[in-house]
Design a protein around this nucleic acid. Sequence first.
RNA 1: GGCUCCUUAGCUCAACUGGAUAGAGCAGCUGCCUUCUAAGCAGCAGGUUUCAGGUUCGAGUCCUGAAGGAGUCACCA
Length: 612
Amino acid sequence: MISTKSIETQVLSFLKSNYDVDFPSEKLIINQTLKQFEGEYTVVIFPFVKMLKKDLAEIGKELGDYLKDSDCKVKDYNLVKGFVNLEMDNDFWGSKLSDVASNKSFGSKKKTGEKVLVEYSSPNTNKPLHLGHIRNILLGWSCAHILEANGAEVVKTQIVNDRGVAICKSMLSWEKFGNGETPESAGVKGDQLVGKYYVEFDKQLKEEYAEWQGSSDAQVVYDERKKEKEEKEQFFKRYKNDYFNHYSELGKETRAMLLKWEDGDKHVKDLWNQMNSWVYSGFDDTYKSLGVDFDCMYYESNTYLLGKEKVEGGLDADIFYKEEDGSIWVDLEDVGMDKKILLRADGTSVYLTQDIGTSLIRYDDHKTEKMVYVVGDEQDYHFKVLFEVMKKLKAPFADNLFHLSYGMIDLPTGKMKSREGTVVDADDLIAEVIAEARKSAEEQGDISEMSKEEQDEVIRRVALGALKFFIIKVAPKKRMIFDPKESVDMQGQTGPYIQNAYVRIQGILRKLDGVAGDFEGYEILKIEKELVREILEYPKVINSAAKDLDPSLVANYCYNLAKAFHKYYHDVRILKSETQEAKHFRVSLIKVVSDTLQKGMRLLGIEMPERM
RNA sequence: GGCUCCUUAGCUCAACUGGAUAGAGCAGCUGCCUUCUAAGCAGCAGGUUUCAGGUUCGAGUCCUGAAGGAGUCACCA
C-alpha cells in the first residue's frame, strides 16, 4: 500500500485522462520487477489492451512517459512485452525509508473496533501435549497476534475437554493401579503422570480383552457378527470398541464412574479435581516454555449443559426435530448436508451440542462477532455443520465463524499414533531443541561473556526460534512432515538464520556512537533499494496473513528479508561507509530492517536474542 | 463408494492469489574468516510443476477427467 499506492493512482489517472476508462483498481497489477530486468516495480498492461484497443507497445510507451512526467518519482522505464518496468528515483527510496523509520507502528493498523475470538490448543485432560498440539498452538497464537496487528481486538482462548469417558479412564486407572502416586512422589509433571495412567488403562484393557477373546462369549459374538471369511484376529480388532461398551469389566467401571461424575458424586468429583489440577499445572509449564498464553479458558464441564438448553430451545422454535426414540436432530439437507444428532435419546449431549453452548457463552462474555477455531482438518465437516447450525439458531456471529483447518503432522517414519508410542511429546521435543541449541552455541556462539542466566535465555530463544519457525513456515492447510533432525537445524532457512540477521544489526548499532542524521544527496545502491522495497511489503504481508489466517506468509517474508540483509551485510561496510550521508542512510536502513524482523517474528511468537 | 483436502528438484518447503526464464534451504561438489560475529556469503549440479485435455495474450495457480496419498461420511471428542 504505502509502496505502490502513488504509482497505482497515477496509472488509473492515466487511463482516465487519456482514454476515459475507469479501470477497477483491484484488477490493477503492480509487481516487483524480476531480477533479470532493470527497474523495481512493474505495471502489467496486458489487461488494458482489450479495453483500449491499442497496441501493447504503444500503450506501454504512453504509460511510461505519463508516469515519468507525473510526480510519482519514476526516473525511467523500459518495456518488455506487456510489462512496463519502472525505475524509481533516489528520492523515492530515501523518502520511503524516512517514512518507515519515523512510523513506530509501521505494519500495524489502528484499532478497527472488530472483536475476534481465537480458540486453539484445546487439549483433553487425560494426556500431555504432543507435537500436533504444538502446531495448533503456534498457528493459533500467531494468528491471534497477526489479527491484532491488523487492527482487531483479540481474545485468545481454548476449550478444555475435561469430561467424558476418556477422562474417566485415566481417573479409574489411577485409582486402581496408582497406589496414591502423585506428581511430587513420582517426580514428574502432572500431565505426564495422568497420561501414564491413561496409557496404563489401555494396557490393562488390552490384556482383559485378550483374555476374553478365548471365552465362550467371545466365540458366540464372533460367530454371530463376523463378516464372510473374516479371521478372528481381524474381527476382534474391529470389535474392540463394542467389547468395551458391552462386555468389558473396565468398561463397566468406567461408565459407572462417568454416571457418578454426572450425578456430582463427591468422591469422584474430588478425584477429578485432584487429577485436573495436576494436568493443568503440567499444561501451564508447557505453555510457558513455549511462550504462549491465553486470555481466558473455557471448560467443557461448564459449557455442555448450556448446549443442551439451546438445543431444547431450538426444538421449541421448530429449528430442530425429535425422533421417535426421543433424540433430537437437525436437518441440514437444505444446505446439502446430512441430518445430525444433537441430543441422544437419554438426554446426554454430543460433541456438537457442547460446541453450540460454548460459542454462545463466549459471545455473551466477550461480544466477539467473529470467532476463529484452530482445529485439525479431520474436523472440517464438523465445523461446517456447526456453522450451519449456528446460522439456523440465528446467532449474531453466525456469519463470521472460521475454521482454521490445518494438516496433520507426519514423522519421517509415518503417522504419529499414540497407541504405537510414536507420538512426539511436547516437553521432550522442547528439551531436545534446547539441548541442540546449547551444543550449537558452544561450538559457534559468541555468548561466553554472558552470565549463566543470560546464556540460558539466549539458548532458549534460539532453540524455540528454530522449532517454531520450522513448524510455522509451512502453509497451515498442508500436511507436513516433521523430521526431528531438521527441526533443530540452525542453518539455512531457519529461525536462527533470521535471528542472526537481527543480532548482526544489533552488533553494529552497539558500536555506533549515536550517529543519526539526514542522508540528502546519497546515491542509494541497487541492493539498498531492494531492501527498502522488501520492507515496504511488510504491511501487505500482515494484511494478507490476517485475511487468510496464514502465519506462514509472515514466516517466509521474514526469511526473505533476512536473506536480503545477510547479503547486504556481506557486500557493504556500514560502519566504514565512504561518507557521513552513506552511513546515515545505512544505519537508518538496518534499523528499520531489524525492527521489521523483530516485529514480524514477534507475531510468530519468536523472540530475538541481542547476541548469539 | 459420496464429499473435502493434498501432489512442485533426491529430501523439506516457496512462488506476491492468472504474469516474464518456477525460487530457497537441506543433502552433494567448489571457493571466501587478520574484516560490522562464518548460526554468514558466492558458485556448480539438481525440474516435462503426478498425468491427459480445456479456458486465454499468458496456467504450478482456474475448469473437466484420470492416478496416487490423506481425511471424513459415529448416538467419539
